[in-house]
Design a protein around this nucleic acid. Structure first.
Lengths: 192, 192
DNA sequence: GAGCCATGTCATCAGTTGGTGACTTCTAGG
DNA sequence: CCTAGAAGTCACCAACTGATGACATGGCTC
């Protein structure tokens, strides 16, 4: 899919590891765990496929590593509370899906169906998504509100995965974004 | 997974077809398109795997047939408008996931990652989910509101797929249900 | 410069998958 | 009762997957 990252300097373990990790992240985000082959990743990274098993142990471990080093929800929690809904909704509904901020979502949602990835995803989504969100909300109903927030966020992503803005013009997309933002802010402010 | 449906009366084309279709529906809902093998389905249906290709042409066609004959959104659209949120939220958050009403969602969400299934899903979700919902809403913003509704519905399903009511007690589940119902009804009544 | 270990390459394995065609067996219609 | 065709069975293929171990080679240390 993409050319080798550093054709000039081969035989550099750190660079190779990084290249594999990045290629894997893109692949997992675009095709999901099952559809991504070790050879695909290796090809993108410009690396022999055998190296992946050597560096990471196996596909599962590579997947876990990718999840661990991907940007999580924290980014959205920075900034003022009132702007949360708008910030998130922008990413969910208007910004291009290629955006990095999106990738963790895509990786998780595209790979849940695979049993080997499912457990890893559950643990990671709890640690790097749910718990921070819940802590950020702070109040007593935090667990339920975090769940509600994630319903909307995941649902929006899912929806976009299925029909990519199919049949929705710019105006409608803005309305969709506004609706999402409003609902998210409702949950944040505690009005379940 | 389950014993043959009719061991007494073999050599019945219609029964065999139905058995395959039902086994496939269960499998696709529980494991998704990729993780489901023709041999798994055949085993559940108590049928030789070769028959599937013979009856349906291939895995893709079988999948399309399963989607086509699964119960769709229409069931939820019956009844009064005010009760919509509650009806749906009940299924999404409190009723057991084994429910048949759930299966179409699960099939779609667990199989989007597979390219072969994705196109079929897109078409079918448009025909059997989106369009009816949009028509039912009726107003001008119907397209956007339908999208918002499906965000919440799919998101709730997705959430449940990832951590099955993990860490949520009965009281919290009721709150979650109430929150979902409220949001859904907001969208139905036009308050985006 | 020699030696050694980390790094990278290659061929290959075993398992699984969807799919196909030749074969057997049952049943309906004459 | 007998035959024709439907229904079901079986063996097998080609493609792909993740993974492994033997081998080649580069680059650092002494």
């Amino acid at each position: 899919m993409s050319p080798p990252l550093s054709p000039v300097r081969t035989r550099n373990a750190a660079a190779t590891r990084t290249a594999i990790l990045e290629a894997a992240r893109r692949r997992f985000a675009h095709e999901g765990y099952d559809q991504t082959g070790l050879r695909d990743i290796a090809g993108d990274a410009g690396v022999d496929a055998a190296l992946i098993s050597r560096y990471f142990g196996g596909k599962d471990e590579l997947f876990a590593e990718v999840l661990a080093c991907s940007p999580n929800i924290a980014e959205f929690l920075e900034g003022d509370r009132e702007g949360f809904g708008e910030r998130v909704a922008q990413v969910l509904a208007v910004e291009p899906m290629r955006e990095e901020k999106f990738e963790l979502f895509l990786i998780m949602l595209r790979s849940v169906s695979s049993p080997k990835a499912a457990e890893t995803i559950r643990i990671h989504s709890q640690q790097a998504f749910f718990q921070p969100l819940q802590d950020w909300l702070g109040d007593k109903d935090a667990a339920v509100r975090a769940r509600l927030l994630s319903c909307v966020m995941m649902g929006a992503t899912m929806n976009r995965m299925i029909h990519e803005d199919f049949l929705l013009d710019d105006q409608q997309r803005r309305e969709l974004c506004a609706g999402l933002a409003r609902t998210l802010d409702h949950y944040v402010s505690g009005e379940i």
